[in-house]
């Protein structure tokens, strides 16, 4: 045995997984996505951010002897021995066409675009399958009673993977309906930020033109100097009412 402090690579244990019915031996430490690549698959689609937010790599799997269907994002879920899986990067769902700016933001518009909303039977298969743990059934229930704001809030974590639609016995495209609710909520129901309008008016009135011009005309050395020497740093323990001494550009 070596006496040096050199680290030795520990070989990961290999476990069997089944991808679309075919068995592969993969290291047990990998995510499903890495395991698939390890097994020789090359992603052209069905893979996006690799960070758990884009919704491109939703995966369904089962475990031996268990009736339950499990879901996860391939890029986030670690493989388990004997799991059998397939990725469902896309699931076809009715997607209504609308001119968003022609909408007024009332529930009836959603009802008209997605009448199938009313075919929900509250079986909850959608919430159970959601890899993001969104209470899908609850936002559909909220929409059925016209509560767009609640639907927008409950569906906020949706990554549009479409697994809900794949399991829906009412054949609803939940994720598209939820997206419309969030759009309407953002554009029509959430109060406008009044300070933003004030700020835009200030900018347009030229309040910051001089400051910006000064920066724009500065050369690299000057910019470095301004940034490292002249800039007044906010103290680590600054109170809420702290403002810099130099406030011409505020």
């Amino acid at each position: 045995m070596s006496t040096t402090t050199e680290q030795t690579a520990v070989e990961a244990k290999m476990i069997p997984i089944y991808v679309m019915g075919k068995k592969y031996e993969v290291p047990e430490t990998l995510t499903i996505m890495k395991a698939l690549e390890y097994a020789g698959y090359k992603y052209i689609r069905g893979c996006g951010c690799r960070g758990g937010v884009c919704g491109a790599c939703s995966t369904v799997y089962r475990k031996p002897g268990d009736y339950k269907i499990y879901t996860g994002l391939a890029c986030q879920t670690v493989v388990e021995p004997e799991m059998y899986l397939t990725q469902l990067p896309f699931y076809p769902a009715n997607r209504a066409t609308y001119d968003f700016h022609a909408l007024e933001g009332n529930p009836e518009e959603i009802f008209g675009l997605y009448p199938e909303l009313f075919r929900c039977v509250a079986c909850n298969a959608c919430s159970k399958v959601c890899p993001m743990d969104v209470e899908v059934m609850d936002y559909i229930a909220a929409l059925k009673r016209g509560d767009i704001a609640a639907a927008a809030q409950i569906s906020f974590d949706c990554i549009q993977c479409g697994l809900c639609a794949s399991r829906c016995m009412g054949e609803l495209p939940q994720y598209h309906i939820g997206q419309l609710a969030r759009r309407i909520n953002g554009a029509y129901l959430t109060p406008r930020a009044e300070h933003l309008a004030t700020m835009v008016a200030n900018i347009e009135a030229g309040r910051y033109t001089e400051c910006l011009n000064k920066l724009k005309s500065a050369d690299e050395d000057e910019l470095k100097r301004l940034y490292t020497e002249e800039r007044e740093l906010e103290p680590a323990q600054a109170g809420e009412d702290w403002t810099p001494k130099e406030n011409v550009c505020l």
Partner: peptide, 12 residues
Amino acid sequence: PSEIPAEEVNDM
């Protein structure tokens, strides 16, 4: 359901 005119749905 997809063939019901939106105006009709709006009323219901």
